[in-house]
Design a protein around this nucleic acid. Sequence first.
DNA 1: AAATAAATTTAGACAAGACTAAAAAAGTAA
DNA 2: TTACTTTTTTAGTCTTGTCTAAATTTATTT
Lengths: 218, 218
Amino acid sequence: MYSDSEENYLKAIFHLERFAEEGVTTNAIAEQMQTKASSVTDMLKKLSDKKLVNYIKYQGVTLTNQGKKTAAAIIRKHRLWEVFLVEKLDFSWDEVHEIAEQLEHIESDLLIEKLDKHLDFPKFDPHGDPIPSKEGTFPERDKVLLSEMKVGETGVCVGVKDTSSSFLKYLDKNGIALGKKIEVLEHEEFDDSLHIQLGSATMVISHMIASNLYLKTN
Amino acid sequence: MYSDSEENYLKAIFHLERFAEEGVTTNAIAEQMQTKASSVTDMLKKLSDKKLVNYIKYQGVTLTNQGKKTAAAIIRKHRLWEVFLVEKLDFSWDEVHEIAEQLEHIESDLLIEKLDKHLDFPKFDPHGDPIPSKEGTFPERDKVLLSEMKVGETGVCVGVKDTSSSFLKYLDKNGIALGKKIEVLEHEEFDDSLHIQLGSATMVISHMIASNLYLKTN
DNA sequence: AAATAAATTTAGACAAGACTAAAAAAGTAA
DNA sequence: TTACTTTTTTAGTCTTGTCTAAATTTATTT
Ligand SMILES: [Mn+2]
Ligand SMILES: [Mn+2]
Ligand SMILES: [Mn+2]
Ligand SMILES: [Mn+2]
């Protein structure tokens, strides 16, 4: 239906649109996609011709409904494959993104339906990101950054903001994983580091870390 | 490493090479790939530059060792994915080829290693075709076409020669599947049809069918 | 309101992979 | 051996997706 490149642009615009109040800018897309602004302009014209984006010269783009639906479908595939890689093939959560980037372009509705069933209809991927339904709606979940929690509060890890390999490996090394319970014991004013209770252990965590970890508080 | 198109050409040449005494001809490749002879010539030059084929103008091509190794790796991926689709996702054997055609181009050695393990290191795909090892060697298996068996002989279905959806569906409909035991009861001289014993049932099978079904005789 | 800077688009080029039409080589028949 | 046929290659074109360099538009300063 759509080329890999077109799909990647749609995905990039979709992600950028959530933080943009106006249209998404050419430069923002170029940076996200690691490409040149002129290449972006070329592609925006093509996507516009195909009614996937609303594009007015010099004014950035927004996705059309068709564009949003298509982007959601690609994200759905990406995240389902990530679940597969971690749950079934025993990959660790820092290894799956690049492979999912390829797998997300495999074209077969039946395949995704069967994969979804095989994985028992997961709602969140290995990084805690929501998996959109076939219809394109994203499951919501209350979550808050660890850095925004007050001393004495308790929560369960449900996601990461930064999904870089180095951050995920740091969490692994320190025994922090999705599903783990954390209590904020103490807040260090000087550098905003936190003392936390993790299972039976207690540890100190920098603000950098705490501001990239999502918890669900009850 | 190599583009999807290059990989597809290598695969086509690999399959054609097994029935060609001389080099594989341009026209044969064009037919196999559903493309034009001129496109084939273009690609043969590229593959030759990359030392994947031995190509002399007007004399057809053969794969180099590097070409053979690469082709085997792609076939390995294709067939492992087919096993996955049938064994884990519950596809039927007539639905998997097109999807495997896409999945075979996913690039990750680790993925294939883990998939292989997940599937418990299968040696044959859902159609009975051998899955080459990581090193590129194909497992052998004694097998004979049902049409070449003598009256009274017994064997177990281990593969199909024709893998078209219509043939596979015919087999499904008639309860013929890999692993099933078949005995040749009678040979009809007039049209070479066969009366066979399949489990507790007896049935008549045309020569067309019998000459596309491989059995292992003990 | 100019002048300057930044963002964006256009123009022109290139590589990959395909095609058509024409030329060249190889094979076959008279 | 010459004529005809088939196969293969070459020449030139097209599309997709990318790039650089230049032009244009928009935004920000003085
Ligand atoms: Mn990812
Ligand atoms: Mn993810
Ligand atoms: Mn197949
Ligand atoms: Mn097969």
